[in-house]
Design a protein around this nucleic acid. Structure first.
Length: 129
DNA sequence: GCCAACGTTGGC
DNA sequence: GCCAACGTTGGC
């Protein structure tokens, strides 16, 4: 899950505890939100200014209508900051790893909520230690 | 700050 | 239903 740290950062998330992941206005990203199950884990990525994966979020509530969306077409999930990565994993590092060359973060840079395979997740976890 | 890559909108 | 025009995102 991606956010510009100027708009909503990891520190904001930690301070807030559980919060809605709102503002998604893209159907593909919305569909990915809908696939999330309670207790699923997600990486929190700081886009634009930092380009780092900084922490891990947990889904605490599955999708429901986004109250900030007047069209009633988009949804949110509730998430909670779970763990800060020991070392942030940068976009450059991810691009340098040939096993990660096909992930959406690299291939579809505009998508703000994207899936990740377990094997890919594990590689990134390893890189953060 | 620029621009490529997309996604959406609206005229036809 | 097509596509030009436009808006947004996010890497560089």
């Amino acid at each position: 899950m991606k956010s510009e740290p100027n708009a909503w950062s990891w520190d904001n998330q930690v301070k807030e505890g559980t919060s809605m992941w709102d503002g998604v206005r893209n159907y593909q990203a919305r569909n990915n939100l809908k696939k999330m199950k309670k207790n699923d884990l997600c990486f929190f990525y700081h886009s634009v200014t930092e380009r780092n994966i900084v922490g891990i979020l947990k889904v605490v509530k599955e999708y429901y209508p986004d109250p900030t969306d007047k069209t009633e077409r988009f949804v949110v999930v509730d998430v909670r900051a779970t763990k800060k990565l020991r070392n942030p994993v940068s976009l450059d590092q991810i691009k340098e790893n040939s096993k990660l060359k096909d992930i959406a973060l690299v291939k579809q840079s505009r998508l703000s909520v994207m899936p990740l395979k377990k094997t890919e997740w594990d590689i990134i976890i390893k890189m953060s230690n």
